[in-house]
Structure formats: structure tokens, C-alpha cells
Lab assay of single mutants.
Amino acid sequence: MPSETPQAEVGPTGCPHRSGPHSAKGSLEKGSPEDKEAKEPLWIRPDAPSRCTWQLGRPASESPHHHTAPAKSPKILPDILKKIGDTPMVRINKIGKKFGLKCELLAKCEFFNAGGSVKDRISLRMIEDAERDGTLKPGDTIIEPTSGNTGIGLALAAAVRGYRCIIVMPEKMSSEKVDVLRALGAEIVRTPTNARFDSPESHVGVAWRLKNEIPNSHILDQYRNASNPLAHYDTTADEILQQCDGKLDMLVASVGTGGTITGIARKLKEKCPGCRIIGVDPEGSILAEPEELNQTEQTTYEVEGIGYDFIPTVLDRTVVDKWFKSNDEEAFTFARMLIAQEGLLCGGSAGSTVAVAVKAAQELQEGQRCVVILPDSVRNYMTKFLSDRWMLQKGFLKEEDLTEKKPWWWHLRVQELGLSAPLTVLPTITCGHTIEILREKGFDQAPVVDEAGVILGMVTLGNMLSSLLAGKVQPSDQVGKVIYKQFKQIRLTDTLGRLSHILEMDHFALVV
């Protein structure tokens, strides 16, 4: 994948999101292997301009796509893939009243899908469409860049269908997702969380590099694949309309690839034109409109599966009536509230959605109805927002919020430890010299600072030695090549209790 991002070429006709291997024109390309080798690009942008032909009021008969309808489940399912879809609609009884809503608040519980998330729908649909058009064949390999849930859905379907599955996901995604993927037989590649989507090191860039190296491999490409919004247009939206008897006044959905909100909203605009569509985008993402909503100094966020630093091709923002931004604290607070007060075992993005819903639905009156999409299960986040310690460490809970008995030293300040200034190293000294210094002084790690004293990161003896043994660096290389740029900081005025929580999850903390 090139470091400079080429513009994806656009073909003359058809839909841009065809499933299957992508040609340089962004659509299915038939021909000899030699032709494909000559024409197939190194990668295709996940934010390529959409060429979708959908228009409100256009006859369904003019759609270029294969459409399906929700099917009634048999008493005995032939395999677990038949437990994807037909998820329950559940009334939220307490939270709406707590925040003064007059309307009825309903939750579409997508964590009841077989793999635990709304992404099971698009995973199965992308595979079925690729099999139907002859792209996927027995023994082929599926590769997908994902925040985890699409990966789980694909790995689940691949396990049943017999495909090899490789999932490329950023490091910030939970260990629970990784464990589930491994249990399903998927191979996992992790990428830096802070890598831009168009960087060769991003999950998108690495996935395309693997595709170019592995024979008979395919990126189904949830960011561009029409099967993504079509899955929701054909099934999720129809289920909502049936469950609500066609009567709903507002739908609120958090947005990642945009397939969920695009597919549902398009069908609702056709069948229930008075329904307002509300999009939820986390602070630090750029999906919301108008652009002024996205202006923030924050560039990272903890909530998973929603928000991006690019506009995915499948996201149709014209069908969203209003956007709201959400933050991590309210997302996790509301997710825990949904679990504790409503018994809905949902993930953090569901918290984002409901946090926005109780604001947006203030305009609705008694007798009206708001539906929220709860995308995934708490299963993926047992060591994250479900953990009091994690919430404390991230600053989303305060010590006084917890009532468990603490040891005698818990409320003492870090400054009472009488710490001395640490050994520091410059980023320009060599790895070999740094190892000598650390061994001589008896230290395992040291902060790396520039000549102005600005902290650049941390270097550890173990990481340097393993990097040297693996051949990633040489003793003569500058130590700046092996620094940890993500590390926890703590102030002298913070409590030892807070430091204790940090050290339970990290090997060190830097006192500043």
C-alpha cells in the first residue's frame, strides 16, 4: 500500500459497493488471473465517493441489488447463522422517566444476534452475496479491517462455511474481542490505534497488504460494500417497522461504517417519512454534520465500534436529520445504567446512543415513540467499562463513588512517597548505550525526554532486548525507535489509591 493515498477510480455505471474482489474501477472485475494482476490496485480507499443510485421515491424494481426479506425461524435451526436477525424490541421503562421523557422509549437489542452484535447481519450478508456472485469459493481466505464486531461476525460465518479468516484490528480494541476471535479460529493482526486510516500501518493498510500477498484472499470491505446497508434496509428496518406496527417518530443510532443508519433510515424514509433520524458520533470522530460539531482538541476516545477519521463510502449522511456528539463518560455511564436499571447487557456504544436519545427525544410528546439501536453486548468489555477499576483509572468514576473498604494508605498523596527525580535518556542515544546505562543503574525503564525536557515516551529494558533479539533494531539504532509513546501519567497530588489502580493494569506510571 502506498504512503500517498491515490484516488480510487470510478467506473461508468453500476453501484460502487459490489461485493467481491475490487477492480481499479471499484466494481467486480472478471477475466484471467493475468488481467486481474495487471488491473487490481494495491488498495482502494474506504472513503471513495459513493456511486449508489438510491433515491427517495425511486421504484424498488430499479435497484441493481439482490434483495432479501426477513424469514421466520424454524423450530430447529440448521446452523447458528440462522440465529442472525429477528432481534427483540424491548421497552426501556426507567431511564426515559428518569430523564423526563414523555414518549415511549424502545430498544432494538442487536446483541441477541448469534455473534453478539449488529455486525453479524452485514457479515453474513457480505459472505452470502460474495458466494452468490462467485467471488468467494471453498478454501478462500477472508481478510477484514475491523474494530472487532464485524470480525467476530465474519469469523463466526467463516467457521460454519469453512473459510480461512484473518482479522486486522487496532490495538485499542478489547482483549475479549481478541479472545472470541481466536476461539472462532480467526487469525488476528493488531495495528497502532493512532495510525491514520490511509497510513500503511493502519488496520485498513495492513489488511490490503495481506490481501496482495495471500492468494485467493478477499477483503469484503464493510466500508464500501453495498451488502452492509442492504442488510439493514432489507431486514433490520423491516423488523423495526413490523415490531412497531409502522408507528415510530424517531430513530437514534450510533454511527461507525454508517451501514446501520443508512440502511434503516432509507427504508424508514420510504415507509415512515415523518420519522426523524438521529445520528450519534463520538467526540474525536469526524462523521457528524455540520462540520463545526467535529471541532475539538480530542483525537482519541475509548468507546469502541463507532466514529472514524474518514467518511466511509457506505455512509449516506443525507438521510440523517440531526447529529449529536457523545463523550466517553456519558457513554459508559449510560451503558452501566442500562445494565443495572433495565437488565440490558449492552456495550458502550449503546450507552452513547441512549445518552443522546434522552436529549433528542425531549421534543417528542406522549403517545409518540423513539427507537434506539443497541449494537453489541457487554461480553466484549468485561475488563473495560464493566470494571470499576478501569473506570477509575480512566477518570470516568471517582473514588467516592465506590463504597468498598480501602487499605490505610489509600488516600495518601503520591508526594508522600518522597520520590527522587528519575533517570532520563535522550532519544538520540543508541539502544546499546541505553541498555548499558539501565543495567549500570539497576533500572528496568526510563523516560525519554528531548533537550527541552519534554517527555516523549518510555523505554524499557525488556522491550529493547526483545527488539534486538527479533532483529527489529540494532544496538547502533537510536533509542527513539523503541519508545512507548502511550503511558499513564500521575500527579504528586493524586492518591496512592489512584496509582494502585493504574499499576494493576500497566507496568509503570510516570509522575509529573
Results as ranks from 00 to 15, higher is better:
2 P>D: 14
3 S>R: 13
4 E>W: 10
4 E>R: 07
7 Q>Y: 15
7 Q>L: 09
8 A>Y: 13
9 E>M: 01
9 E>A: 13
10 V>Q: 07
11 G>F: 04
12 P>D: 05
13 T>C: 01
14 G>R: 06
17 H>C: 01
18 R>A: 13
20 G>E: 13
20 G>R: 10
23 S>N: 01
24 A>D: 11
25 K>T: 07
26 G>V: 13
27 S>Y: 07
27 S>A: 09
28 L>H: 14
28 L>I: 12
32 S>K: 04
34 E>S: 04
34 E>C: 06
34 E>W: 09
34 E>N: 01
35 D>A: 13
35 D>G: 11
37 E>C: 08
38 A>W: 04
38 A>V: 13
39 K>A: 08
41 P>T: 11
41 P>G: 07
42 L>G: 13
42 L>T: 06
43 W>M: 10
43 W>P: 09
44 I>G: 01
45 R>F: 05
48 A>E: 01
49 P>H: 15
49 P>C: 10
55 Q>E: 10
56 L>S: 07
57 G>R: 12
58 R>W: 12
58 R>I: 08
60 A>T: 09
61 S>K: 07
61 S>L: 07
61 S>P: 14
61 S>R: 14
62 E>Y: 13
63 S>G: 07
63 S>A: 12
63 S>T: 09
64 P>W: 01
68 T>H: 09
69 A>C: 10
69 A>H: 06
71 A>T: 12
73 S>F: 11
73 S>V: 11
74 P>I: 03
75 K>G: 13
77 L>P: 04
78 P>S: 12
79 D>I: 09
81 L>W: 01
82 K>R: 09
90 V>A: 04
91 R>N: 12
92 I>A: 03
93 N>R: 04
93 N>T: 11
93 N>F: 01
94 K>A: 08
95 I>K: 01
96 G>C: 13
97 K>D: 13
97 K>C: 01
100 G>F: 10
102 K>L: 07
104 E>T: 01
104 E>N: 08
105 L>D: 01
106 L>Y: 09
108 K>R: 01
110 E>L: 04
112 F>C: 01
113 N>D: 05
114 A>C: 04
119 K>F: 03
121 R>Y: 05
121 R>Q: 05
125 R>L: 07
126 M>W: 04
128 E>F: 10
128 E>W: 08
129 D>P: 01
130 A>P: 01
132 R>C: 11
133 D>F: 01
135 T>N: 12
136 L>C: 15
136 L>K: 01
137 K>C: 01
142 I>A: 04
147 S>H: 06
148 G>Y: 01
150 T>N: 01
150 T>W: 01
152 I>T: 11
152 I>V: 10
152 I>N: 07
153 G>T: 01
153 G>A: 01
155 A>P: 08
157 A>K: 01
159 A>C: 01
159 A>W: 01
160 V>S: 13
163 Y>M: 07
165 C>S: 05
166 I>R: 09
170 P>C: 01
171 E>M: 12
172 K>I: 01
173 M>T: 07
174 S>P: 05
175 S>C: 08
175 S>E: 11
176 E>Q: 11
177 K>P: 01
178 V>T: 06
178 V>I: 01
178 V>F: 11
178 V>K: 11
180 V>R: 01
180 V>M: 08
181 L>P: 05
182 R>Q: 11
182 R>N: 01
183 A>F: 01
187 E>C: 10
188 I>C: 01
191 T>H: 01
193 T>L: 09
195 A>T: 09
195 A>P: 01
195 A>L: 04
196 R>F: 09
198 D>C: 10
198 D>V: 01
199 S>T: 06
199 S>M: 01
201 E>Y: 04
201 E>G: 13
202 S>L: 01
204 V>C: 15
204 V>L: 01
205 G>M: 01
209 R>D: 01
210 L>F: 07
210 L>V: 05
211 K>N: 12
215 P>Y: 08
216 N>P: 06
216 N>W: 01
217 S>R: 01
220 L>V: 03
220 L>S: 04
221 D>H: 06
221 D>W: 01
222 Q>C: 01
222 Q>M: 04
223 Y>F: 07
223 Y>H: 01
224 R>S: 01
224 R>F: 01
225 N>D: 01
231 A>M: 08
232 H>L: 06
232 H>C: 01
234 D>M: 15
234 D>N: 11
235 T>Y: 13
236 T>V: 01
236 T>R: 01
241 L>A: 13
241 L>T: 07
242 Q>I: 14
245 D>V: 08
247 K>C: 15
248 L>G: 01
248 L>N: 01
248 L>W: 01
249 D>G: 14
250 M>R: 04
250 M>S: 03
252 V>E: 14
253 A>S: 07
253 A>L: 15
254 S>P: 12
254 S>C: 13
254 S>L: 01
257 T>R: 12
257 T>G: 01
258 G>S: 11
259 G>F: 01
259 G>D: 01
260 T>K: 01
262 T>Y: 01
263 G>P: 04
264 I>R: 06
267 K>I: 13
267 K>D: 05
267 K>W: 08
268 L>V: 07
268 L>R: 10
269 K>W: 06
271 K>P: 05
272 C>K: 01
274 G>T: 01
276 R>S: 01
276 R>F: 09
